[in-house]
């Protein structure tokens, strides 16, 4: 005696229901678009009101930090000749430095000129290859 059709249908519905619920309740929080500086600068309207990741190089000499505050930085990142001002409000990872590559998570300000970010992944200029696949960049 195998499972009855009714049982199978109930099981199928439960499966579809739970997957559907998960899909609907997914706010897309973890999935972020990943763009380079020039894409944002060229078309800021495309990225308004959304959390995105921006990849660029920290322009040397532009890092300004509010002394004594818990991470309040302003700096400029560039890529492919375009530049973008960043206001970063969090602790910086160990690997953050001038001339280094960073990937910032955040949103564009209302006027589209400043990128407000509070999460950063910084790459070191690869002096060490990524041995062991250890994610040297990982930080919160």
């Amino acid at each position: 005696m195998a499972l009855s059709v009714g049982t199978k249908m109930v099981l199928g519905l439960a499966l579809v229901g739970s997957v559907g619920y998960l899909a609907l309740s997914d706010t897309g929080q973890g999935v972020l678009e990943y763009v380079y500086v020039e894409q944002v600068v060229d078309r800021p309207e495309d990225f308004a009101d959304r959390t995105i990741k921006v990849h660029g190089t920290v322009v040397p000499g532009t890092i300004r930090q509010k002394r004594g505050s818990t991470g309040d930085y302003r700096f400029v990142i560039e890529h492919a000749g375009k530049r973008l001002s960043v206001h970063y409000t969090n602790l910086v990872p160990d690997t953050f430095q001038e001339g280094g590559e960073v990937i910032l998570t955040g949103r564009l300000s209302a006027d589209g000129t400043v990128f407000e970010s509070d999460e950063m992944t910084a790459k070191c200029p690869s002096k060490y290859e990524e041995e062991q696949g250890v994610d040297l960049k990982e930080t919160r």
């Binding site: 998960l22 309740s25 997914d26 929080q29 973890g30 999935v31 972020l32 990943y34 763009v35 894409q39």
Partner: peptide
């Protein structure tokens, strides 16, 4: 297609249940 990244919130959302 633009590049995307998938972060912990996405995995947590699906893997928790």
């Amino acid at each position: 297609p633009t590049r995307v990244t998938i972060g912990p919130p996405f995995f947590n959302h699906w893997m928790r249940p």
